[in-house]
Design a protein around this nucleic acid. Sequence first.
DNA 1: CGCCACCTCTGGAGCGCTCCAAAGCAGCAT
DNA 2: ATGCTGCTTTGGAGCGCTCCAGAGGTGGCG
Lengths: 335, 335
Amino acid sequence: MIANIEDVARLAGVARSTVSNVINRPGIVAEATRKRVTDAMEMLGYVPNESARVLAGGLGRFIGMVVHDASNPFFGRIARAVEDIALERDYVVTLTSTGAEAAREDNALRLLMRQRAQGVLLTTAALRATAVASLRKIGTRVVLLDSPGGDDECSVSVDDVEGGRLAGRHFLECGYTRIAFAGRPQRTTQHGDRLTGLREALAEDGRRPGLHVQKLTVAGDDVASGRQAAATIAAGDLSTPLAVLCGNDLIAMGLMFGLQELGVRVPDQVAICGYDDIDLAQYLAIPLTTVRQPMDAMGRAAFELLLDEVTSKEHTHLGKQFVPELVVRRSTAPI
Amino acid sequence: MIANIEDVARLAGVARSTVSNVINRPGIVAEATRKRVTDAMEMLGYVPNESARVLAGGLGRFIGMVVHDASNPFFGRIARAVEDIALERDYVVTLTSTGAEAAREDNALRLLMRQRAQGVLLTTAALRATAVASLRKIGTRVVLLDSPGGDDECSVSVDDVEGGRLAGRHFLECGYTRIAFAGRPQRTTQHGDRLTGLREALAEDGRRPGLHVQKLTVAGDDVASGRQAAATIAAGDLSTPLAVLCGNDLIAMGLMFGLQELGVRVPDQVAICGYDDIDLAQYLAIPLTTVRQPMDAMGRAAFELLLDEVTSKEHTHLGKQFVPELVVRRSTAPI
DNA sequence: CGCCACCTCTGGAGCGCTCCAAAGCAGCAT
DNA sequence: ATGCTGCTTTGGAGCGCTCCAGAGGTGGCG
C-alpha cells in the first residue's frame, strides 16, 4: 500500500542502498542515477519512514520541550523561537505543559524516553536528579531552561537577581519610598532571586538604609493571582505612593487591571513593574514597565546548546546566562 | 549500553516474546512470570524503544497538531485540552505553529509524515487538498480544527454565523444604532462568518431595517492590530455610541486598550464585544463581553474524533459543530 | 490411564532502513 | 594488453520490537 525504499529501488532499477544514499548522501551518487531515483520517489509519493531510520542507527531528529505552561506567553515565545530554529534544522519538537506537577512531568519524560528523543529542553520546578539521570542513561540529552542548573548539564537562564536589582534601582530613582514584591518567593527560585535583587538594590542605596520590601505572596503565576493582590493593596494605605515589582508580567497585568477597576490610579498611587516583557505588555492601556528577558535568544541558545550536545563529540557543559534589561513604560513614573 | 528487550528477557530467564507480552498484554502472562519480568525491567532501567515498536507494526502513539499560532490563547487553550486527553491515552502530541504560512505548514506536515504520525489535527487557512491527500496516502488521519471541512474528513468547528448573530442581537437589545466589525473578513472564513451573522441579526431586526455594519479591516489577529483600529475609531464620530464586534478577543483587547489610552470611554462611547472568551477576557479592568467558544470541549472532541478514525474499523467522517454562547460582561451595556 | 482442552510461553520471521565491506567499472599510465 | 586508482553501486547484516503458529505443561474427565 504505502511505498517503501524497496519499491523505489525496484522502480528506479537500483539497489536499496543507492536509494538510501540519495536520501542521506546525495553527493556520492552519480547525477543520472540520482535523477532516476528522485523521479521514482516522486512517482510513488515515497516518504521515508523515520522509525526505521532511527532504528537502523541513523540519528533521530526529534526533541522534546517540557515547560510549566505553554499558554504562558513567556514560555510560548521561547517555544516559538525553539520551533523556528528546529524546523530550519529539520528537527521536530514536541511541546508539553506540566502545570508544574511532578506526575505530569514524569509522564511526559517517560513518553519522550520511549520515543528516544534526541534531547529535551526542560523547565522543571524542582530539579529531580533521578529523572534527568534516567533520561541521560538512554542517551537523551538535557538542557535546563530558565534555571541555572549544575555542572552536569547545559542550561539557559537569566540573571534574575540582576533583574530585581534593575527594578529596585528604577523605583529608587523615581523616588518611591514604599516598595513591595508580588510573586511566589517560596516556590520558584526565579521569583526568589528577583526579590533578592530588589532587596539588594535597596540595601545598596546609601540614602535610605533600612528600606524594606513588603511581600505580597500570590497563589499562582497568572493574571487571576495578580488581580487578587490588587484587593490587598487597595485595602491598605494609599496615602504614600507604592511601587510594586511583580514576579512576572501576567501578575503585573492582573494587578493593574484590578487596581484600575477599584479606582486606584496607576502609576500615581501605585507604580507597577512586571517581569519578562511579554508581547502584551507594550499594548496595555497603560503600557507596562518591565524587566525584559530575551526570550527569542534564550530559545535559540537552548536549542543550539542541545544540538551541540547531541551532535558534537567533545561537548562541554555550559551554563549560559543572559542579562535582563529594564524597559521603562508608563506604569511607573517619577513621583 | 542501553538495555533492550533481549537484555530484559535474559535477566528474567524468559523469551523476548514474553517480555513483549508483559508490556502489551499483561493479562495473558502468569503472575509469577510477570513479576520476574517487571523486576528485570526495573533493574535494567528498561524503556521500550518506540521506533522499533512502530516499525514492527504495533500502532504508533503519536499525533501532530498544526495551528496558526500556538501563542494565541485560543489555540493554546485547545492545545492544552488536546494534550491533557492525549497524555491520558499515552499519546504524544507535537504542536507546530505555521504563522498561517503555506511553506511552514507544508514543512510541518512533511516532518509529521516522516514520523508516521497516526494523525494530525490541522488548522489550515486555505485547505490545500493535496497536502491532506498525501497525508492520507501514508495512512495519517486528519481532523480539521476550527473549520467546517468537507465530507472527506472529520472536523470540529463552531457555528460562527450564530456567534455573530448573538453579538448582533445583544447590540440591538442594548440599543445601539451604530455597529461595526473589526476583523479580517477577507482572509479567514471564521471572521467572515462572524460578520455575516452580525449582519443577519441586524437584518432580522424588524425595528430598524437597513441598519448597516461599518467594516474596520485590521492587519492581523493580534492585540497590535486591534490597537491600530482604535485610532481610526477615535478619529471618527463619537457623538452617537458605537458597538464593535471584534474578530477575536485579542483584537478586542487591543481596541479597548487603545481607546482607553485615547480617552474614549468603554462602554459609554464605544461598546466592545470580543470572540473566543480567552482566559484573560474576564480579568481585564473592564471585563470583556464576548462570544465564547468551548475550547476545552473542542480540543477533546477533536482528539476523540481522531482517535476513533485511527483505531476504529468502521469510522464515518463527522463534522462536529459546537454552538457558541454570549458572555455579557462590562465592555457592553444598555445605552 | 489416556486424551483433550486450556493456559503459558517460545522461536522465528519480518517491519524499513542504514551502514559497511567489497564488488564493479571506468579511465589512465605503463 | 595489464594493472592500478578512484568513483559508484551493491548485497547482507542488523537495529529492537511485535506477531503468529505452535510447543510444553497442567488438570479434568471419560
